[in-house]
Design a binder for these strands. Structure first.
Length: 155
DNA sequence: GCCAACGTTGGC
DNA sequence: GCCAACGTTGGC
């Protein structure tokens, strides 16, 4: 079982939106970055846990926990000429882009902000910080536990 | 295969 | 809204 962090702009799709979705589940799609795609397609398994991170937010922060409930499937928006995420290089025989299904588990007792993560000795080397623009990144066990503990404490 | 130009992400 | 960082594209 592995831990991950996934980013979403709350204006587009927030953790609250995930909680309100049918079965509290959504297809995590429209990822168009090869490194993120490789994680989604090859490494993320059912049962893995995910920090749900709000980017472009005030403040940007980890706000909740989700669980992977179905592993990689082909992202249909790559074939849809009307979609913003249409990719002319993708074919039904050779799809390029994938997504996974995630289900809301619980909101953190309080958000853990990027600012706090950058300041924390055990968190400042997170891939989230090092590779700022990657929308899916792995989280170590230590990082996971540290963030869960932080969220359980008032600051 | 190099690398300049261009596009996107996302913090601020 | 700006712009730095960095991934992608395409000419050569």
């Amino acid at each position: 079982m592995n831990y991950w962090l996934m980013k979403s702009e709350p204006e587009v799709f927030s953790y609250a939106d995930l909680e309100k979705a049918p079965q509290q589940t959504t297809f995590w799609d429209n990822i168009r970055n090869y490194q993120a795609r490789n994680f989604l397609r090859d490494e993320i398994k059912v049962g893995d846990l995910v920090f749900f991170y709000h980017s472009n937010a005030q403040p940007s922060a980890i706000v909740g926990i989700a669980k992977v409930v179905q592993q990689a499937s082909v992202d249909p928006s790559q074939f849809d000429k009307k979609s913003d995420y249409y990719d002319p290089k993708a074919t039904q025989e050779k799809p390029i882009w994938y997504g996974v299904h995630i289900q809301a588990q619980k909101a953190l007792q309080r958000p853990v902000s990027l600012e706090e993560i950058k300041k924390h000795l055990l968190l400042k080397n997170m891939m989230l910080v090092q590779r700022g623009r990657l929308s899916v990144s792995p989280v170590s066990v230590k990082e996971w536990e540290t963030i869960v503990q932080l969220a359980g404490r008032s600051r």
